[in-house]
Simulated assay, not measured.
Amino acid sequence: MHLEHVNLVVADMDAMLKFYRAAFPHWRIREEGTGFWNGKPRKWLHFGDDYQYLALNDNGEGENRDLEGHSVGLAHFAYVTNSIADVITRLNHAGFTVSSTGAADPFRKNVYFVDPAGFEVEFVEYLSDIPAERNLSTQSK
Rank of each mutant, 00 (worst) to 15 (best):
A104M: 09
L67E: 06
P25E: 12
W37G: 09
T89V: 13
Y126E: 02
R108Y: 05
D129E: 15
V121R: 00
S128H: 09
W37V: 08
H2C: 08
N92V: 14
P106A: 10
V6I: 14
H46R: 11
D58I: 08
R65Y: 00
F113Y: 13
T81P: 00
A55R: 09
D12I: 07
Q139K: 13
A94M: 12
M16R: 06
G60A: 10
F96N: 08
L3Q: 09
L56E: 04
R30C: 07
R21H: 08
S99G: 04
H5P: 02
G118Y: 05
Y53D: 12
M16P: 01
M16H: 04
N64W: 02
D14S: 07
L91H: 04
F119K: 03
M1C: 11
F123H: 01
G60Y: 00
S99L: 11
W44S: 04
A85Y: 03
L8W: 03
A104Y: 14
N135T: 12
N82D: 15
F119E: 02
W37R: 15
H76P: 15
W27Q: 04
D58G: 06
E4S: 14
V124N: 07
H70T: 09
L136G: 02
L54S: 13
G102F: 12
L17D: 05
T34R: 07
Y20W: 07
N7I: 02
R90M: 12
E32A: 10
E4G: 14
N57P: 00
A94Q: 07
R42F: 08
D14E: 12
P41M: 05
A132E: 15
Y79I: 10
S83N: 10
Q52H: 15
V124K: 05
E133Y: 14
T34S: 02
L54R: 08
S140R: 11
V72C: 02
M16Q: 11
A11Q: 12
E32Y: 04
L54A: 13
W37I: 05
G48L: 09
K43M: 00
D115R: 01
V10I: 13
Y20T: 03
T81F: 11
V87A: 03
Q139R: 08
E32Q: 12
G102H: 06
A94W: 07
G35Y: 02
H5K: 11
A55M: 11
S128L: 06
Y79N: 06
D14F: 04
L127C: 10
A55Q: 14
E63F: 01
D50C: 03
Q139V: 13
P131T: 09
T34L: 01
A85K: 14
Y126A: 06
P116F: 05
Y112R: 14
G118N: 15
H26N: 14
T138V: 14
A85P: 00
R90P: 00
G48R: 08
E125W: 05
R65L: 05
V10L: 02
W27T: 04
D50T: 05
E122M: 04
G73R: 04
K43H: 09
E120A: 06
D115S: 09
R65A: 06
N92R: 15
Y79F: 15
S128D: 06
G62E: 11
M13D: 01
D12V: 11
E63N: 04
N57T: 11
N110I: 08
Y112K: 14
N110G: 00
V72E: 06
M13F: 00
A23H: 07
A23R: 07
